[in-house]
C-alpha cells in the first residue's frame, strides 16, 4: 500500500506539472517585452519583465468593457440555469412516471445533439425575433439549464433524498414549491453551488454564441474581444497572452471555489449531494 501511494503521488505530480507548466509559460510569455528575438531555450522568467502588455491589451480592444459584458451575461445565465435545472429536476421526481420517462428521454436526446448542429436554425430563429446583437441569445441557453445534463444531475440528487422526507412534507400539506424551497434545495446545496459555478464558467468562456450573435463592439464579451485582439496583431504574442491571462484569471478564482464542491468528496457533501 505504501509503495502504491508513492507511485500515485508521482503520477499526481506529473499531472500537476503537465497542466502547470503551460500556465507558467502563459504568464511568463505575457510579461515578455514585445519584439524581442526568440530565445534559444524556453524561458521561465523573461528579461526584462514588463507589465505594459496588460495595459495595451486592455486598451486596444476594450477588455474592461468586454469583461463587464461577460460578467453581466454569466451572472444572469448561471443563477437562471440553477433555477431552471433545479425546478425541472425536482418536478421530475414528483410527476407521474410516464411524463417523467418522456422528459428524461427527451433530455438524453437533446444531450446527443452537437451545439454546432443547431447554430444555423437558432440564428434564423433569433433573427426573426429581432434578438440578434443583444444578450438574449447568450442568456437563453439557461432555459435548457445551459446543458440538459444539469437537469439530470439535479434529478438524481433529489431522487437520492429519502422518500419519507417527501411523504412527511405531503402530510404537512406543503406545496411542491414549498418542498423545493424549504427541504429539497437546502439538502442538495453542494450540487446547486457546483452547478451554478460550472454554468458561470461555461457562460464566461462561451465563444461560439457571441461570435454568431454579437456584431456591435460595445456588446463584445471577453472571448470575442480576445479574438479581435488576435486578429488585430496576430504575431504579438506577449500582447495576446496578456489578454488570455485577463480572460482566464476570474475563472480561476471561480474554479478554485467550485472544485471544492465536486472534487473533494470527503468534505462532507460533494457531487450529487453525497
Amino acid at each position: 500500500m505504501v509503495r502504491g501511494t508513492f507511485w500515485r503521488s508521482l503520477g499526481a505530480a506529473a499531472v500537476i506539472a503537465v497542466v502547470g507548466l503551460p500556465i507558467v509559460f502563459l504568464i511568463a510569455g505575457s510579461l515578455r517585452q514585445p519584439g524581442l528575438p526568440p530565445p534559444v531555450t524556453p524561458e521561465l522568467i523573461p528579461d526584462p519583465v514588463v507589465f505594459g502588455n496588460y495595459e495595451r491589451a486592455a486598451d486596444l480592444v476594450g477588455l474592461g468593457r468586454a469583461a463587464l459584458n461577460s460578467f453581466i451575461v454569466a451572472a444572469l445565465a448561471a443563477p437562471l440555469s440553477v433555477l431552471v435545472a433545479s425546478w425541472a429536476g425536482f418536478a421530475l421526481v414528483l410527476i407521474r412516471a410516464r411524463a417523467r420517462t418522456a422528459i428524461l428521454a427527451a433530455s438524453l436526446l437533446a444531450l446527443m445533439i452537437p451545439l454546432t448542429a443547431l447554430l444555423v436554425p437558432r440564428f434564423a430563429l433569433y433573427r426573426s425575433l429581432g434578438l440578434v446583437n443583444t444578450f438574449v441569445p447568450l442568456v437563453a441557453p439557461a432555459l435548457v439549464a445551459t446543458s440538459p445534463i444539469y437537469v439530470l444531475v439535479f434529478y438524481v440528487a433529489f431522487r437520492r433524498l429519502p422518500p419519507e422526507l417527501y411523504d412527511a412534507c405531503r402530510l404537512e400539506a406543503a406545496s411542491p414549491f414549498q418542498i423545493w424551497r424549504r427541504v429539497a434545495m437546502p439538502l442538495v446545496r453542494p450540487v446547486a453551488v457546483a452547478i451554478g459555478l460550472l454554468a458561470f464558467v461555461l457562460s464566461w468562456g462561451n465563444f461560439l454564441d457571441p461570435l454568431v450573435y454579437l456584431h456591435d463592439r460595445d456588446l463584445f464579451t471577453l472571448p470575442l474581444a480576445l479574438r479581435s485582439l488576435a486578429q488585430l496583431d496576430p504575431t504579438n504574442y506577449p500582447l495576446l497572452l496578456a489578454g488570455a491571462v485577463i480572460a482566464t484569471a476570474p475563472i480561476v478564482a471561480v474554479f478554485l471555489v467550485a472544485q471544492r464542491y465536486f472534487l473533494h468528496e470527503h468534505r462532507g457533501a460533494g457531487w450529487l449531494g453525497r
Binding site: 431552471v84 422528459i103 445533439i113 443547431l118 432555459l143 435548457v144 439549464a145
Partner: peptide
C-alpha cells in the same frame, strides 16, 4: 416548475432541429 425547461427544450432544441 417544468415549464421553463420544456420551453427551452422545444424552443432551443426541438424546433431548431426540425427547422434545420
Amino acid at each position: 416548475m417544468l415549464a421553463p425547461y420544456l420551453l427551452g427544450l422545444v424552443g432551443l432544441v426541438a424546433v431548431p432541429a426540425v427547422v434545420t
